[in-house]
Simulated assay, not measured.
Amino acid sequence: MSKLESAKGFKHSKPGLMLGIGGSAFGAFGIVKDIRRARTEADTLKLINAAVGALALVTSTLLLVRELRRLSQDDVLAD
């Protein structure tokens, strides 16, 4: 297996999924900062933008968690 093929498989591996969840958690700090700034400035459009970003972040995290659970169920050695 070449390095490129193994790198493509990393995205769907347990460490790759955990890294994705960690990245989503790190992105939450930026969303919180955007929401606070929008409230301070009383900017409704920025607040809506931050809320939509938060919703996208939650959705992507839930997708990663679901994929991680499926990966654990398929793993015979996980039991």
Results as ranks from 00 to 15, higher is better:
71 L>D: 11
30 G>A: 11
54 A>D: 05
67 E>F: 10
32 V>N: 13
17 L>F: 00
31 I>Y: 05
47 L>S: 02
44 T>C: 08
19 L>G: 12
76 V>T: 01
41 E>H: 11
65 V>W: 09
18 M>F: 02
57 L>T: 06
21 I>K: 14
33 K>M: 11
9 G>C: 09
5 E>W: 00
68 L>A: 14
60 S>H: 10
34 D>L: 01
56 A>K: 05
31 I>E: 10
54 A>Y: 12
73 Q>V: 00
48 I>V: 10
53 G>V: 05
12 H>Q: 03
33 K>N: 13
56 A>C: 00
45 L>H: 09
40 T>L: 14
61 T>C: 04
74 D>F: 13
54 A>T: 08
37 R>E: 12
43 D>F: 00
10 F>E: 11
62 L>T: 06
4 L>P: 03
25 A>E: 13
39 R>C: 01
48 I>L: 15
9 G>M: 10
44 T>D: 15
75 D>T: 02
20 G>D: 05
21 I>E: 01
75 D>G: 02
14 K>F: 07
49 N>P: 00
8 K>M: 02
25 A>T: 15
19 L>E: 05
45 L>K: 09
44 T>P: 07
30 G>H: 13
42 A>V: 15
44 T>Q: 12
48 I>S: 12
16 G>P: 02
49 N>H: 06
11 K>Q: 09
4 L>S: 11
9 G>E: 10
38 A>W: 03
42 A>K: 06
51 A>K: 15
11 K>S: 10
46 K>D: 04
28 A>P: 08
13 S>K: 04
40 T>I: 08
50 A>L: 13
54 A>E: 05
8 K>F: 13
75 D>C: 11
23 G>T: 09
27 G>W: 07
23 G>E: 15
3 K>I: 07
58 V>M: 03
75 D>R: 08
39 R>Q: 15
40 T>Q: 09
42 A>Q: 14
29 F>M: 11
17 L>H: 10
65 V>K: 04
50 A>K: 14
25 A>C: 08
57 L>W: 09
71 L>W: 01
24 S>K: 12
14 K>V: 14
26 F>D: 09
61 T>V: 04
64 L>D: 08
18 M>C: 00
24 S>W: 06
8 K>W: 03
56 A>S: 09
65 V>H: 01
32 V>M: 14
33 K>Y: 03
28 A>K: 10
76 V>I: 06
60 S>G: 02
9 G>N: 08
68 L>Y: 07
36 R>W: 14
5 E>N: 14
20 G>V: 01
51 A>C: 02
63 L>A: 12
66 R>I: 03
7 A>E: 04
64 L>S: 15
56 A>Q: 07
52 V>R: 03
42 A>G: 04
72 S>R: 09
15 P>V: 01
7 A>W: 05
54 A>G: 10
36 R>I: 05
75 D>S: 02
53 G>K: 15
24 S>M: 08
54 A>R: 01
41 E>K: 10
24 S>Q: 11
39 R>I: 04
21 I>C: 02
15 P>R: 11
26 F>I: 12
22 G>P: 00
7 A>S: 10
9 G>V: 00
17 L>P: 03
39 R>S: 04
48 I>K: 12
52 V>Y: 07
32 V>W: 08
19 L>T: 09
7 A>V: 03
55 L>E: 01
15 P>G: 07
